[in-house]
């Protein structure tokens, strides 16, 4: 799970390291650290934004350890669905029951259809849909895409996927 956390540190040496140690102790992987020295608070503390990956079950323990170290956690924003993909569908999408497709993807519990744009030129003509799917990881995203491919194959719909960039 990707977590974005705003913390405040006292302006004394060693504070940043002290705040990052618990994350690594709990197996977290730090993605970025923004140290806003220019935005000192009225209390004289320095806001720091840390983004990291950690198992969902470890988050409570992490907050506890930070508290024990006297670090103020201002905000915790967990982004559960961190992987996203954009696909196009072309065919008789509404007639084929796109709602069931969305339910099936959402029903996995690990992926969700978060955006759907439909373009329907005329009643008997094929429509086009842009689908944005988010999932908790790459494997789960692949599973959601398999569901989309299965639906498309059953209904004679063409799926246009992105050219994979990790060449």
């Amino acid at each position: 799970m990707k977590v974005s956390m705003d913390i405040e540190l006292k302006d004394v040496p060693g504070q940043l390291v002290s705040a990052l140690i618990p994350i690594s102790e709990l197996g977290g992987n730090i993605i970025s650290v923004l140290h806003h020295r220019d935005r000192k608070t009225q209390r004289g503390t320095i806001p720091v934004q840390v983004v990291f990956d950690v198992e969902e079950s470890k988050l409570a323990a992490l907050l506890q350890r930070l508290r024990e170290r006297g670090i103020t956690v201002v905000r915790v924003g967990a982004e559960r669905l961190k992987e996203a993909v954009f696909v196009l569908l072309i065919g008789h999408i509404v007639r084929s029951g796109v709602k069931e497709l969305i339910n099936e993807v959402d029903g996995t519990g690990v992926a969700e259809v978060v955006e759907l744009f439909l373009s329907m030129p005329a009643v008997e003509e094929k429509s086009a849909a842009a689908l944005k799917i988010r999932a908790i990881g790459k494997m789960e995203l692949e599973r959601a895409l398999d569901i989309v491919e299965g639906f498309a194959a059953r209904c004679g719909i063409l799926v246009v996927r992105p050219i994979e960039d990790e060449l």
Partner: peptide
């Protein structure tokens, strides 16, 4: 099977 609508949706999303 590609339609102008599909190309338009792609373009709106940077593709």
């Amino acid at each position: 099977e590609i339609t102008p609508e599909a190309l338009s949706l792609a373009r709106d999303n940077g593709y």
